[in-house]
Design a binder for these strands. Structure first.
Lengths: 154, 154
DNA sequence: ATTATTGCAAATCGTTTGCAACTAC
DNA sequence: GTAGTTGCAAACGATTTGCAATAAT
């Protein structure tokens, strides 16, 4: 019987090493922050949160790490029309809690919805397959956003 | 028999006046550029294009106009993960030529697809209705993007 | 020991803004 | 004439980068 090694809870270390990267405190701290919330955090928010436990980690490192994580497909970079980029663990984004977004064009309010998703997902999978074949794209995520006016802004 | 006034080809003037804005040369020039292409142009690209015919129009005006047009729902602001915002006439975006996007995570290549759309649209309309009711959102557009690796980048 | 990673401060770059001149109405 | 609009240059803010110090392997 062989033990399944899980490393830092998700095999993070192995995943980094496998890509030729090192497993560092900064990276762990940032992934921890992202793991601890479902919010769409900006780089600066992540930085502030990381600072509470590791005051020595700099903002540049947060940016560099996020870039790396996006490249590794560990996090998803989102855009809601406010200027800053927002980040969310891909795992959170794509799991059974998969959700899409409703964005208010005036105040920027964002509503995450998970209802009506099953049908969407089913259809999207079909579409995904069709697109993959036709365009030879290897698709690994998708995003749906509805734009309009929220109750308050109408 | 009453004539239908069309103004500048789309009743632009009336549309602006109706919102309390003025119909100016800059605005016409920018809308003309957007009307002449299906591309997703950045503010600077629009500026460069406008410059060819109207060298006196400044970049700041382009930004201010685009902001106004987004607010008026005349244009749709898009984001493909390269830093700059990109713009497309809402009309182009939402008409029968309605399309969605495939975005390559590595090289940023964008493929517009129009196939597989009918089913999507049908479903989205249903979803839209459901979301509107539940969240009291007035939805007037949507966006679907698939992310992955294009043929060349795999 | 070797090489990736980091913090810091400076630089970059898309976008916004203050203001006086200008233009649509 | 009265606002809304514009060009210009300066300001802004998010993100990136050079570099010497530091940490992971």
């Amino acid at each position: 019987m062989v033990l399944r090694l899980r490393g830092e809870g998700h095999g993070w270390k192995g995943r980094f090493r496998g890509c030729g990267y090192r497993w560092t405190l900064s990276r762990k701290a940032i992934i921890d922050v992202l793991s601890s919330t479902k919010d769409h955090m900006s780089a600066e928010e992540i930085y502030n949160s990381v600072q509470k436990n590791y005051p020595s980690i700099g903002l540049a490192t947060v940016y560099r790490t996020l870039e790396l994580l996006v490249e590794m497909r560990v996090v998803m970079r989102l855009d809601f029309g406010d200027k800053r980029a927002r980040y969310e663990l891909a795992e959170t984004f794509s799991s059974k809690d998969h959700h899409h977004h409703l964005v208010c064009n005036r105040c920027g309010k964002i509503i995450e919805y998970t209802e009506f998703i099953e049908d969407e997902v089913e259809l999207l999978e079909k579409t995904e397959k069709g697109l993959s074949m036709k365009y030879h794209f290897k698709i690994d995520n998708h995003m749906i956003q509805f734009y309009g006016l929220c109750k308050a802004c109408q």
